[in-house]
């Protein structure tokens, strides 16, 4: 691998007595799409949230795009602009329009004027296919549309990496497709993406690499075909078997 854009080493995370991450190494190359799968409680969401320091790792090192995320001297708010994050529950600001959601950080963090932020905001909404919904509030949008606005909110800041934390788990099945489509187009534009999700079909045809986590550790990783067809570990086999039965 050339110089990775995300380089996390020996990440441990304790929640009180609970040892959630037990020394995870994850390196992601530029333009790579890494899929993280695993049973609930395996630590995959926690790992993702450590990468932009929404969770403080107990130990380890994380370097994203050359920035040492765990260095106390790092301006974390500045660093976070480069790492977009999309949440399971969208977390749009309900008191703002779609455009307001997308432009808030542009104005407050990136220091853009309102006019410039609006222009970039409209462009981001256009990329997720919601140019005509700019003035709608989250309550007036479907779940799929809300999640796409959330994606627009992140990509408007032109991040170097995007983290997706179960982006389609809260959606009705018929709305999943529109979100996956946006993710696919992001991938085609060369975005580096780390995705925690159970969308195995998407993983199979879009991911460069699938990482299987269990009990706070990466058990096995490789190209989707290898992980899904010929997993080498018993735990991976059991998990893949379980999700493919559904």
């Amino acid at each position: 691998m050339t110089k990775p854009i995300v380089d996390a080493r020996a990440i441990h995370k304790h929640f009180g007595a609970l040892h959630v991450l037990k020394g995870v190494d994850l390196r992601v190359a530029e333009r790579e799409l890494v899929f993280v799968i695993g049973p609930s409680g395996s630590g995959k969401s926690t790992l993702l949230r450590c990468l932009n320091r929404l969770e403080e790792p107990s130990s380890g090192s994380i370097v994203v795009d050359g920035i040492d995320m765990l260095d106390p001297r790092t301006d974390i708010n500045h660093a976070r602009q480069r790492i977009g994050m999309v949440f399971q529950s969208f977390n749009l600001y309900p008191h703002m329009t779609a455009l307001g959601n997308v432009t808030l950080a542009l104005r407050k963090v990136a220091g853009k004027s309102r006019a410039e932020a609006d222009r970039l905001g409209h462009a981001a909404l256009e990329r997720v296919g919601l140019a005509d919904r700019a003035e709608h509030t989250p309550g007036q949008l479907s779940g799929g549309q809300q999640q796409r606005v959330a994606i627009a909110r992140s990509i408007a800041l032109e991040p170097r990496v995007m983290l997706f934390d179960e982006p389609t788990s809260a959606l009705d099945p018929e709305l999943v497709g529109s979100v996956l489509e946006v993710m696919r187009s992001l991938r085609e534009s060369g975005m580096t993406m780390i995705v925690v999700s159970h969308e195995m079909g998407f993983a199979r045809n879009a991911a460069d690499r699938v990482v299987f986590m269990d009990d706070g550790l990466i058990v096995e990783q490789g190209p989707p075909a290898a992980i899904f067809e010929t997993p080498t570990h018993e735990r991976t086999r059991a998990f893949i078997g379980q999700i493919q039965r559904h």
Partner: peptide, 20 residues
């Protein structure tokens, strides 16, 4: 989640409190 969404886009604690 409102705090997390805002902080993840780089807003500070104070900016999140006031704007979100």
């Amino acid at each position: 989640g409102q705090w997390e969404a805002s902080r993840s886009t780089g807003l500070s604690f104070g900016q999140t409190l006031i704007n979100v």
